[in-house]
Amino acid sequence: MLLNTIELGPENGDLSRPPVVFLHGLFGRGRNFGFFQRRMAATRRTLALDLRNHGKSPHGPMDYPTLAADVRETLSAHDALPATVVGHSMGGKAAMMLALSYPTDVHSLLVADIAPAQGGFAQSDQLARRMADLSLPDFLDRAGADALLAHDIAEKPVRDLMMMNLDLGEHPHWNIGIHEIARSMPAIVGWPALAAGIHYDGPTLFIAGGRSRYIQQANHPVMRQLFPHYQLDIIPDAGHWVHAQAPAEFLHLMQQFVEAA
């Protein structure tokens, strides 16, 4: 599946270096990484992708091998392989699967606040099902959508994220594959069984939020097994949305890693 792609790059830069690719999290879209894409695009070719069922990309069943294959097909179509791949949450799992499945296509890997394991996405399974079953009125403006979603989503930042996925006005509707997402949540929360010995030897950086529990001490052995050269940096005052909650710190770590890899 070819994915919707936002591409930015320098007017006069060294395009021979690997491009930087951004993969968003659940219910997000490529433009969520806009701040970081614009900064990196000053010197590097960059591509931000809408994963399947998100943003302007096509819809269909989801699991991590499928997401990784979509990303590879799209980057190949854009002549953007090998690439440095940056992924947050669900996008981080997709990025890890891409590196493990197609290691020569990934120059280096940055994973934001997710581990290669079952878990993460607290309450997201129930949220996806509730949103898929939500009855929308004949007309909905932003205030009305906020009030409607508040019945199921107490946190304002999460409501704002979900409202990006609604086309408002007359005959409001989801512009994402909400039913496909809901059906695929067991695979998204999970992590597939891998063949013995599979690993990615390239440079790998995990960035965790100090107030998040998505990467735990118990995950470190499998992280070392799958990504033997990984490093882990922690931004103490950030939670799971580490790049949004600590953008300056995240940008600094990302730029250091990309330039050194």
Rank of each mutant, 00 (worst) to 15 (best):
L49C: 08
L49P: 00
L51F: 08
L51Y: 04
N53P: 04
N53V: 00
H54L: 03
K56D: 15
K56R: 15
K56S: 14
P58T: 09
P58N: 11
G60L: 04
P61E: 14
P61D: 13
M62E: 08
D63A: 12
D63W: 12
D63N: 15
Y64E: 08
Y64R: 09
Y64A: 10
T66R: 14
L67K: 05
L67A: 09
A68L: 07
V71L: 06
V71I: 13
R72H: 13
R72G: 09
E73V: 12
T74W: 02
L75W: 06
S76R: 13
A77C: 15
H78D: 14
A80W: 05
P82M: 11
P82R: 08
P82G: 13
A83V: 12
T84G: 15
T84I: 13
V85I: 14
V86G: 06
H88M: 12
S89R: 10
M90A: 13
G91Y: 04
G91M: 07
G91H: 05
K93V: 07
K93T: 08
A94F: 08
A94M: 12
A95P: 06
M96Q: 07
M97P: 04
M97H: 08
L98C: 13
L100H: 06
L100D: 05
L100F: 09
L100S: 06
S101D: 08
Y102W: 14
Y102H: 13
T104K: 14
D105R: 06
D105G: 10
V106P: 00
V106D: 00
I114L: 03
I114D: 00
I114N: 00
A115Y: 02
A115L: 05
A115R: 01
P116Y: 03
P116M: 07
Q118F: 12
Q118E: 12
Q118H: 14
G119A: 01
G120L: 02
G120I: 01
F121V: 05
F121T: 02
F121G: 05
F121Q: 02
A122F: 11
A122S: 14
Q123W: 10
S124C: 09
D125L: 08
L127I: 03
L127N: 00
A128H: 01
A128G: 03
R129M: 06
R129Q: 10
R129G: 02
M131E: 00
M131C: 06
M131Y: 00
A132H: 03
A132C: 07
D133M: 07
L134M: 07
S135P: 02
